[in-house]
Simulated assay, not measured.
Amino acid sequence: MIVDNSGELFNIGAHFMATNPIIKIVEPILAIGFIIHIILASILTLQNRGARPIKYDLRRQSGNCTWSSRNMYILGGLVLIFLFVHLWNFWWKIKFAGDPLLTEINVDGTTMENTYALVSGLFKSSIIYCFLYILGGIFLGLHLTHGFWSAFQSIGFCNQIWRKRLECLAKIFAFIIAAGFSIIPLYFMLGLAN
């Protein structure tokens, strides 16, 4: 998309993702993993809140934990909304509902759906959707910043040397993911597409 305004590379990539047998196996496993993660995170959050029914009078947690780690449940909810919007507007339409923009095209002798038209049509038609999508990418990045290193902490990498390294890697990883989700709407908002 960014290096090819025609949309051919985007359509080739989307077709590869839709027809690759490994992706077809991993996709439902990933979905089940998300569902389990959401259920277990909700149970754990409710148990933690129930463990101390009376709130502290004064909370000064900014010195020993980040804003993201204190608000993982809220960020998780916002990411869930973002995930729902993303799946509804793209995955659901491509897999099941269809869309008038998903006409079949021929790229290098292979017939495929024009997913570029679907994606570009949505981002070109709504600057609000672009902003919401970028915001969703940022929320996802913030959620992953804490989640990445705390996953390693859960398996024992919790000393100060590893924690600092993992927090740095988490920030890099989260930035790449957030930028990856934000770059396509930014591309259309800045008018770089045809």
Rank of each mutant, 00 (worst) to 15 (best):
H143T: 04
L87Y: 02
I74A: 08
F139V: 11
G50Q: 12
I134G: 08
F175I: 10
M112H: 03
G136R: 01
N114A: 12
F16L: 13
A51K: 08
L132F: 12
I74N: 05
G141W: 02
F152E: 08
H146M: 00
L169C: 09
I36Q: 01
S6K: 09
M189I: 15
N64L: 14
S69N: 07
I23E: 09
I36T: 00
H86D: 10
K164P: 01
I105H: 04
F139T: 01
E104I: 01
F16R: 09
Y116W: 10
G63I: 02
Y133W: 13
V79N: 04
V79P: 08
W67K: 01
L78H: 12
G76D: 06
V107C: 05
I36V: 14
N106I: 07
P185I: 14
P53E: 13
I138K: 13
L30T: 13
C65M: 15
N159E: 08
A117G: 05
T103M: 00
S125V: 01
V3T: 04
M1R: 10
F175K: 04
R60T: 11
A117R: 04
I2T: 02
L83A: 03
W149D: 07
E27T: 05
I172T: 15
I138L: 09
I127Y: 13
L142E: 14
N48A: 11
L142G: 01
S126E: 12
L83R: 01
E113K: 04
R163T: 06
G98H: 06
W149Y: 03
G136E: 12
M17F: 14
T115I: 15
I54G: 03
F90I: 14
F188M: 15
I36W: 03
C158L: 12
S42I: 00
M17D: 07
I35A: 09
S69V: 07
S6M: 02
I43C: 05
D4T: 13
C158K: 15
L58N: 14
L78Y: 05
F123H: 09
I134P: 11
E104M: 00
I54L: 06
V26D: 02
H146G: 05
K24Q: 12
D108V: 04
F148C: 10
C130Y: 00
C130P: 06
Y133A: 11
A117Q: 06
I155D: 09
N159Q: 07
N48I: 03
